[in-house]
């Protein structure tokens, strides 16, 4: 079944304490080539049947209204996944 992916990131000007904690760990591991880490969210919306323009518009609306909060986050991308991750996952 087709899957719509919604990617959400904390706004770039906001502190991302979780990302900062991972950055600290990388520094302690000596991975100095990575200067910063930011952590966002990825939603996978499974669709029963074909992804029409209307369904994609609905997903975009959902991304803006519920899956993200525009005060603290940005919707980075909404797109249709060609092959679902679940299909290739072991049972």
């Amino acid at each position: 079944m087709p899957t719509i992916v919604v990617e959400v990131m904390p706004k770039s000007e906001l502190l991302d304490p979780a990302g900062k904690a991972v950055t600290g760990a990388l520094t302690r591991l000596g991975k100095s080539e990575f200067s910063a880490v930011r952590i966002g969210k990825r939603f996978e919306l499974t669709v029963d049947g074909a992804v029409t323009e209307a369904i994609l518009a609905e997903a975009q609306q959902l991304a803006d209204d519920m899956l993200s909060n525009s005060v603290i986050e940005d919707v980075v991308r909404v797109y249709v996944l060609e092959k679902t991750v679940l299909e290739s996952a072991p049972a």
């Binding site: 502190l15 979780a18 909060n69």
Partner: peptide, 15 residues
């Protein structure tokens, strides 16, 4: 989140 008050609440700055 219900938009009855403005703004947002995020993780404490010290984590």
């Amino acid at each position: 989140e219900a938009h009855l008050l403005p703004g947002g609440l995020i993780r404490n700055n010290h984590g």
